[in-house]
Design a protein around this nucleic acid. Structure first.
Length: 653
RNA sequence: GCUGGCGUAGCUCAAUCGGUAGAGCACCUGUUUUGUAAACAGGCGGUUAGGGGUUCAAGUCCCCUCGCUAGCUCCA
């Protein structure tokens, strides 16, 4: 590490350096030197320039959380002897620590007990102490403690790196030690607000072939107030959970008869269809053509495409009575094998169909780029533990399209796609988008040369557009690298929505060709792309983004007429009829409820407008408008409201 | 798929140590005629996810299956 390069005599503990400069205040937890966060225990060059990090700084909070993880591990090992420690980093909203606990997991009661023990450790306010040891010393220490996971970690630390131990507690009494890079707060008393939140399984080193450890999640803040604030935000986020909103707003539901396959109710179907319309309209502008393709296919198709073999475990297969009989005829084959080989498959993707269409006749270079769109319903068998509301389902529809083009056209097509993509996301006020370039996975088809070229093409596209991105190594599809566009849900889980994938392999496998200017056959390139990704997932993210408050153009019901009493029903119905005759989506509440109750009901359904009508309005030919977003707007002539709502009903372009 | 947790009326949730399944909302029927966030009364509604076991007795304890859920792994 860099500080090893400094001469020994010129190093002093960071605490001393900060003190010399007169900056050692009570809330200083670390310093930043050369962009690196170093705690006060760590030696730094005596002449280093630094920036102090306070407990309340973003970096400071991370130091607090990592230290809290240590205190938790200390408490856990004291309460549950025999439990081994592994790793415990600070994360986005808190920290976790993974344990190997004999005899199974932790209960909620255990969490409360652990939290209490942590408070005792914190109350003692013992300093964290940093100690540098040799590799052999570290190994000997943790081998003696039978901390097999730590031993494995120490062995994996590169030879040239320093190994440090962090201790807290009273030596010879309740001292606790961990091999750790740091950084840590000066003493346990710096941990003022901690809370353990949940427990879950996690594989050692994130690999499902490894044993499962017990992970405890928690969070910590520099003050009780900040912790309370955080917990409040989580509560509010839960209110916006799309699964809750879906129920409340009668948009969709699930039933055990079709696990993880949504039933869209009339109101949900309305929104869904408007999203589809919206994309269809844009396709006119961007030069796409739509096709309709089959749902189930002879498995031959998916052998050609490579799905059988690379995507097997995600596919639904279909059998028929005839198929069983055929299988029974030849005892050498057997029913199971015959069904496995010959049963039709529900499509999990549209690309093979589009290859079939492209290859169905001679194609000219003049046709390229050919952008072919498909709103086909797709089915993918997702493993039990991964499905999640509308975000991860087994039956869905993508705003899917494939672009067949020449190598030379790729750059422009990527550019056009990005333009379309950002235009759409802007229309939905989604601005926090993370882009990742997912590169070749282990399980893949095609030569490395093709992969090199494909990955380069996508990367250049992003660079030309000046978009920041991260690389997700090995995360590409089996047929090509991907650009992934990720957006977070209300609970800060990140979901991939849009995608663009460069695919040189499927045209090869389907032996696709177009006739070039030179009269010879050439292989086209294929781009897979989707802006929303799937309508299901997009809807889940968007629902949470707008909190169920759909804009007027998208709202299943734009306005509801509320009568003050029966006396105004006739007038109310005439208002309703007028709205509907103008193509507006309106409802009426002519029930015996009092006005207050009607308003309350209408609010929970989040209708953009309530039109309150009573004798005064009937007299004046007006409606009293209450806007969901802007509050009471007062009485206005019927025609004025109609014009206003019509203006708001246009979908963005 | 793995590790926890959960599954009671359409929805949100009660039910003490294993001892008669209950409330609010919604729905239906009346009464009330109401001007900006819940009028009142009555009624309907349940093989306690499904199956098996222990027990005199199971919503409650045990086992299996299904589903949901928090994470992990995997993915749009």
């Amino acid at each position: 590490m860099w500080y090893l390069k400094a001469r020994m005599e010129s190093r002093i503990p960071a605490r001393e350096l900060v003190k010399q400069k007169g900056q050692l205040k009570d809330d200083v937890v670390a310093i930043k030197v050369d962009g690196r966060i170093v705690d006060l225990h760590t030696p730094v060059p005596a002449d280093a320039t630094f920036e102090v990090i306070h407990a309340t700084d973003k970096d400071g909070i991370q130091v607090i959380r990592h230290s809290t993880a240590h205190v938790m591990a200390d408490a856990v090992q004291r309460l549950f002897p025999g439990t081994k420690v592994t790793i415990g980093p600070a994360i986005e909203d808190g920290f976790y620590y993974d344990f190997d606990k004999p005899g199974g997991g932790f209960s909620d009661e255990d969490l409360a007990t652990i939290e209490k023990a942590m408070l005792d450790v914190i109350a003692k306010n013992t300093p964290f102490r940093r100690e540098v040891v040799s590799r052999n010393e570290a190994l000997a220490l943790f081998e003696k403690m039978n901390e097999t996971f730590k031993v494995e970690i120490i062995r994996s630390i590169p030879e040239n790196e320093e190994i440090s131990l962090y201790k807290h507690g009273t030596p010879g009494d309740d001292e606790w030690v961990d091999v750790c890079e740091g950084p840590h707060v000066p003493s346990t008393g710096f941990l003022r607000a901690v809370k353990l939140t949940s427990v879950a399984g996690a594989y050692w080193r994130g690999d499902e072939r490894n044993p499962m450890l017990q992970r405890i999640y928690g969070t910590a803040f520099p003050s009780k107030e900040a912790l309370e604030e955080h917990l409040k935000l989580i509560e509010e986020a839960k209110q916006r959970d799309h699964r809750k909103l879906g129920k409340e707003l009668d948009l969709f539901f699930f039933d055990q008869v079709a696990p993880a396959m949504p039933f869209f109710l009339p109101r949900g179907a309305y929104v869904y269809n408007r999203l589809v319309d919206y994309v269809r309209n844009l396709y006119v502008d961007y030069g796409y053509e739509e096709v309709i393709t089959p749902q189930a296919f002879d498995p031959k198709l998916f052998r050609t495409s490579g799905h059988l073999g690379n995507y097997n475990e995600n596919m639904y297969r279909l059998w028929t009575e005839d198929l069983l009989e055929e299988g029974a005829v030849d005892p050498k084959v057997g029913v199971a094998k015959h069904v496995q080989e010959a049963s039709f498959a529900l499509k999990p993707m549209n690309c093979p169909s589009h290859c079939v269409i492209f290859g169905a006749r001679k194609r000219s270079y003049r046709e390229l780029p050919w952008r072919v769109a498909d709103f086909g319903r797709l089915h993918r068998y997702e493993r039990g533990g991964v499905v999640h509301g509308l975000s991860r389902v087994r039956s869905f529809c993508q705003d899917d399209a494939h672009i067949f083009c020449t190598q030379d056209q790729v750059a422009e097509e990527i550019e056009k796609f990005l333009k379309m993509f950002y235009g759409i996301y802007k229309a939905f006020a989604l601005t926090k988008i993370d882009i990742r370039l997912a590169t070749r996975p282990e399980k893949r088809i095609g030569s490395d040369d093709l992969w090199d070229m494909s990955e380069r093409a996508l990367q250049e596209g992003l660079e030309r557009a000046g978009l920041p991105f991260e690389i997700s190594k090995g995360e590409g599809a089996f047929y090509g690298p991907k650009l992934e566009f990720h957006v977070q849900d209300a609970l800060k889980r990140s979901w991939q929505l849009g995608t663009m994938q460069y695919d040189p392999n499927l045209p090869e496998r389907f032996d696709l060709a177009y006739t070039g200017e030179d009269g010879k056959d050439h292989r086209p390139v294929m781009l897979h792309r989707a802006v929303f990704g799937t309508f299901e997932r997009f809807l889940s993210v968007y629902l949470e983004h707008c909190g169920g408050n759909f804009p007027a153009w998208l709202a299943p019901t734009q306005a509801i007429v509320l009568t003050v009493s029966d006396k105004s029903e006739a007038y109310g119905r005439s208002v309703l009829e007028e709205l509907r005759s103008k193509g507006l989506r309106a409802e009426g509440d002519f029930s015996g409820d009092k006005l207050g109750a009607k308003i309350r009901n209408a609010r929970t359904y989040r209708y953009p407008y309530m039109l309150i009508v009573g004798p005064k309005d009937a007299e004046a030919g007006s409606v009293s408008v209450r806007s969901r977003d802007a509050g009471e707007l007062g009485a206005m002539p019927r025609a004025e409201f109609v014009a206003k709502l019509l203006a708001e009903s246009a979908s963005p372009r």
